[in-house]
Nucleic acid binder design. Sequence first.
RNA 1: CGGGGCGUAGCGCAGUCCGGUUAGCGCACCUGGUUUGGGACCAGGGGGUCGCAGGUUCGAAUCCUGCCGCCCCGACCA
Length: 434
Amino acid sequence: MFKDTGHVNAYFPLFIPKSFLSREAQHVEGFAKECAVITHHRLMNDPDGNGVVVDPSARLEEELVVRPTSETIIWNTYKDWIQSYRDLPLLINQWANVVRWEMRTRPFLRTAEFLWQEGHTAHATKEEAELEAALIHEVYARFAEDYMAMPVIKGAKTANERFAGAEETYTIEALMQDGKALQAGTSHFLGQNFAKAFDVKFADNNNQEEYVWATSWGVSTRLVGGLVMTHSDDDGLVIPPRLAPTQVVIVPIPKPTTEILEVAEQIENRLKALGISVRIDRDEQKRPGFKFAQYEMEGVPVRIGIGMRDLANQQVEVARRDTKEKMPVLLEGIDKYIQKLLEDIQLNLFDRAKKFRDDHITEVKNFDEFKSVLEEKGGFIKAHWDGTTETELKIKEETKATIRCIPNEEPESPGKCVYSGEKSSRKVLFAKAY
RNA sequence: CGGGGCGUAGCGCAGUCCGGUUAGCGCACCUGGUUUGGGACCAGGGGGUCGCAGGUUCGAAUCCUGCCGCCCCGACCA
């Protein structure tokens, strides 16, 4: 689904000259405090014999910054690549690691280095760039919901929460099982900010010079954390079938025998013919109970148990990870049954997560209610907001909750701000977030 | 940078307050046997600079001094 959008892959340098960062004022302000900076290019043996030290004579003339994101180096390049409207749109994606020197890291959700894809596009018109940002926003939402079975709310970020250098940031927001929100992917309409900062102009079909319009967007390994925290339970991971590396595992009971393996292999072949990934556990050392627990922990969606008792009845035992249910299934038609079951699990995971999410969107009328819901129930809080950064920051200061997004689907409705009492045209979603 | 906590076997911990057998337990590992439809059991075994350095003492994982490392909370942030 990503490839259908027509973007091409490319790769840009990891090291960015420090001066590039300072070209766009908002951008540098946003990232300045979390950059890894390269100052030297050589090590040497410590004269005092304490291993290796930085060679002070190898100081760089201009320091290099390890990319926190690639806008600057890419726009410095686009400047040379774009001359005319015939060069547009320029649609590029890169897979890369980036570094943001966080004070506090958290596995998967906020790591100092993370892997992501970042798209960077240039367009002739504002409308086209806006459509691009919206398109990717939708692609991210579809991926989250249809593949990860993770329901998301699409919306726009407030000015305060916006990407540094963007005119508009669109986000997909998910809700984790502990009631905290997770920003799962963002798509930015950058206006002409980077075009102006890096002097990227094109000649239109009247030979008039114009600055190009831009977007950028990304999702990262943070999604892995989101996947885990959306579906998993006390027995371990729960991986949606569409993303599970192994969709079905076959466990011989109590251990592999010729007879059992013969049937297992038949099932394996029939499932593979339907494009289902299967693994037969041929280990003879571990007992079935151990294997059951192990595969549950790993989140394998479907387990098939085969013992002599089953074979006598021409059946097997099928267990699904999402509900932990077990049922006997006849060998006849087992392939179609499993195929259908995988689809059911995929849908069930989504429905279950969506129900939880919807049950945790609470509309509040006043600030006392806001605080008590936030403390006692968690999740999203829907409330009127007066639109000012000042109010937003005060709420954050007092409650730790931030505005996760201004939901696309929330209709305009006049009201009064939950904090200031000032006029508000629309409700927004607040939550404590990762 | 502020506040709190922790360093003892591969992992998780007890022992430290109140110094005194050969430093112990669970998991994991090795050997043998018995088991096998939900994380097997029994027996035997291997594995330790008790974070580092110095000090007190007949004797230090334990007390004292200094240092090092890690984790949690706060400020940053996706």
